[in-house]
Design a protein around this nucleic acid. Sequence first.
DNA 1: CGCCTTCTTTGCGCTTGCGCAAAGAAGGCG
DNA 2: CGCCTTCTTTGCGCAAGCGCAAAGAAGGCG
Lengths: 236, 236
Amino acid sequence: MSNQALFESTIRHVAVLKAASDEEVQLIARMGIQRSIEDGAFFFMQGDPAEYLYIMLTGRAKLCQIAPDGQQVNLRTLNPKQLFGAVGAVDPQATYPACAQALEDSSAIAICSAEFRKLLEEHPHLSFGLMKLMTGYISEMQNRYREMATEKVEQRIARVLLRLAGQTGKRVEEGVLIELSFSRQDLAEMAGTTLFTVSRVLSAWEKQKLIATGRERVMLTNPHAVMRLAEGLDEK
Amino acid sequence: MSNQALFESTIRHVAVLKAASDEEVQLIARMGIQRSIEDGAFFFMQGDPAEYLYIMLTGRAKLCQIAPDGQQVNLRTLNPKQLFGAVGAVDPQATYPACAQALEDSSAIAICSAEFRKLLEEHPHLSFGLMKLMTGYISEMQNRYREMATEKVEQRIARVLLRLAGQTGKRVEEGVLIELSFSRQDLAEMAGTTLFTVSRVLSAWEKQKLIATGRERVMLTNPHAVMRLAEGLDEK
DNA sequence: CGCCTTCTTTGCGCTTGCGCAAAGAAGGCG
DNA sequence: CGCCTTCTTTGCGCAAGCGCAAAGAAGGCG
């Protein structure tokens, strides 16, 4: 498949652009260039000028923030067909508010923010898709913020597992399997805690047969119980 | 001043709509109706269908989330000329992701989301202002999320004070005064902690002469020291 | 002025979860 | 196969911050 065709077929399935006509899809595809990066490399760093926006083609990446002191927080994972890094299309002077780091060898369509902005001006109905994405983010971040502020570690870890299960979990005989390169450290960054605490909590749950763990691997053998934990029911 | 004239002069100074022409400002003003509510009342509740968006006229309100168990988290305060509750203009089926509660008797221009959406369709350049607002929110929420995840209580409280000082602080002889109806409880909800902890921390700072406190009142006598605390420098 | 409500402080005990160190798996790769 | 790296677990001690109760200000209002 030619690059152009590959781009088009991917773009056609991007949620944000579902209102795009065939013609618009073609236009966007022509604006794109492919960028492939290795596991651990960055599509962009927090604070860089937001010159490109991206649409994930293959692989996975994480959006994360790095505090001045080096501590990291994981905001979300980026999967194929997801659009990310679009701030530049809205404000030409914007810088990325987070960094995007590949969790495995990955590739994405890179589109020049300024060009995309022009496209938005000429095809304004596309803005609605983008705005919907943004309001969704806002709403999600507000919820996560509340969770971080009011819930305790166990609940937050349970939520992380459920979110991952929903995004990339595979249903197998014994439960739902999350098998990706997520170390305890990564889980800790998603839950806002330390790898030690994550390890301890998962061990405890394993003893209670709620989950089964392995190296960079978690299986939810009793997803329903994990959901109850996330909701903070079981309050002892 | 007639309502229409009042609306227009307010709308003209709304940051999100600064790209609006005089004509557009008039159009928007005509769509608005005034809503006045009492201290403690709600413009809208989390989960309500987002039928209206608002522009604050007088008073102040807080945007907050309420957890299923009743715990609250404070997201931001709304001041005059700020636009809020605009999700409905983007997605007709959206519900408000937070609630807006008046901190004092307040009034706002209420604009029907569906009408505003039509306006956006016909005057698409206005979308850019809205999108810029949204990306700003996202970026801010991501930062706050990181802070909540990685910083400890003292730092977060310091940040809350600085944010309030920046928004509504008055410069007086002895320092910067924050004199609003923010109880220790409110501060706790903003910092993601408990009123007891806030009280203790503020008492400690008062002993060190960094601040002076009173009932629903805080004065930063040594703002620079508070900034250092917020940055987590002073690490003992 | 005095009562009443609301807000604030403080003491005390205790839980949660962090920090570190050290040891134990699990792969990867030559 | 065996070494090396990376990931994970666990024990132990400790500090931060929560929860509660009770008492002490500060206003508000009749």
